[in-house]
Computed example of a mutant assay.
Amino acid sequence: MASKTMRSMRTPLARVRGLGSAKEGFHHWWMQRLTAIALVPLALWFVVSVAGMAGMDHAAAVTWIGSPAVTVLLVLLIAATFWHAQLGVQVVIEDYVHGEGCKLVALIAVKFAAVLLAVAGIVAVLRVSFGG
């Protein structure tokens, strides 16, 4: 009974402490914007590059990927894409999944999937680039 009385006497600020902060939401929003800004030139570069590769054989494509600048840009494109996608799906889950258990499982699954797929893509680019 005493703990219930103590809880009811707490101020509204004390009741919400530990439930998240405005800084966390702002960071998430800011990261979404930064990854979106990064993806604009990276995606444009990638689309133009792939369009220019029409008729290119496998050896020429491997040589293209092996170029240091191309390798770096592909790695950045993959990292930014999966980070941005994970942030966006996280917002959808937080807004539309109401069960706390399901929400937690879904958020963890999305984060793991994003990391796994990003690492797989980056490793693939590096293997082609370095001839592994």
Rank of each mutant, 00 (worst) to 15 (best):
A2E: 10
A2P: 03
T5K: 10
M9T: 07
R10L: 15
T11C: 00
P12T: 09
L13R: 15
L13I: 09
L13N: 14
A14N: 12
R15V: 13
R17H: 11
G18D: 08
L19G: 03
L19T: 12
A22N: 13
K23S: 15
K23G: 15
K23Y: 12
F26N: 06
H28M: 13
W29T: 04
W30G: 00
R33D: 08
L34S: 06
L34R: 05
T35H: 01
A36I: 04
I37F: 10
I37E: 04
A38Y: 01
L39I: 02
V40S: 09
P41V: 08
L42I: 07
L42K: 10
L44P: 00
L44K: 07
L44W: 07
F46P: 01
V47C: 02
V47D: 00
S49V: 05
G52C: 05
G55K: 03
M56F: 11
M56V: 14
D57M: 06
D57P: 06
H58W: 12
H58L: 09
A59K: 15
A59M: 11
A60M: 14
A60H: 13
A61N: 11
A61M: 15
A61E: 13
V62I: 13
T63S: 14
I65L: 00
I65G: 00
G66N: 10
G66Q: 09
G66L: 04
G66Y: 05
S67N: 15
P68H: 03
P68Q: 03
A69Y: 12
V70F: 01
T71A: 10
T71C: 12
V72S: 06
L74R: 01
V75G: 02
L76G: 01
L76T: 01
I78E: 04
A80I: 01
A80M: 10
T81A: 08
W83K: 08
V89R: 09
Q90E: 15
V92A: 15
I93S: 08
V97F: 02
V97I: 10
V97L: 04
G99Y: 03
G99I: 03
E100M: 05
G101H: 10
G101D: 06
K103F: 02
V105L: 14
V105D: 03
V105Y: 07
A106V: 07
A106H: 05
L107M: 09
A109C: 10
K111S: 14
K111D: 10
K111M: 15
F112D: 09
F112K: 11
V115E: 00
L116I: 10
A118S: 14
A118C: 13
V119I: 14
I122L: 04
A124I: 01
V125F: 01
L126T: 06
R127M: 07
F130G: 03
G132C: 05
G132Q: 05
